[in-house]
Amino acid sequence: MATKHIKVTINGRVQEVLVDSTWTLLETLRDHLGLTGTPEGCSNGNCGACTVLMDGTTACSCLVLAAEADGREVTTVEGLEVGGRLSPVQDAFVKEGGLQCGFCTPGFLVSTTFLLDSNPKPSEEEIRLNLAGNLCRCTGYDKIVRAVQRAAGT
C-alpha cells in the first residue's frame, strides 16, 4: 500500500495526515479524523450527502482522493458554525424544519452555504437548480427550499 503524507486545513485547523493513496477524502474525514458529520450516501456523486467545501467550492468528498486535498482548505458541516453558534443557514433549517430523517442535511447545509455565498438572493428556481445535486429521500424539498429562503431573507 502506498501512503502519502498530506497537510490539509480542515475547518480552520491544519492537520497532517498519513493517508493511503486509495482513500477518499470522505473516508479520511469519517474513519480517520472522526468527523462523522459528513455521511456516506451513494458513494458515486449522485446524492450529495457527503458534500464539503474545498477551497471554497462544493465537492462530493466521495469522489475526491484524500491525497488531492494536500495543501487545500476543507470545510465540513462541523465547520459551518459561527463562534460556537449555528450559522444563519443552519438556524434557518432548524426554524423551518428543513429536514426529516436528517441524513441528507449536512450536504444541504454545505451546498446552501456555497449557493448563498455566490448568490445571496436566489429565486426559488435557482435554489432548486443549485441544490439538484443533493437528494432528500424523505422528499422534504419544500421545507428545505423554505429554509434556504429564510436564510436568504427572501
Binding site: 456523486g45 450529495g48 458534500t51 467550492t57 462544493t58 465537492a59 462530493c60 469522489l63 475526491v64 451546498s111 456555497f114 449557493l115 443549485n130 439538484a132 445535486g133 443533493n134
Partner: peptide, 9 residues
Amino acid sequence: IGSVQIQNR
C-alpha cells in the same frame, strides 16, 4: 453536467 458539486470538480 451533473450537479454544481460535479461541475466544480
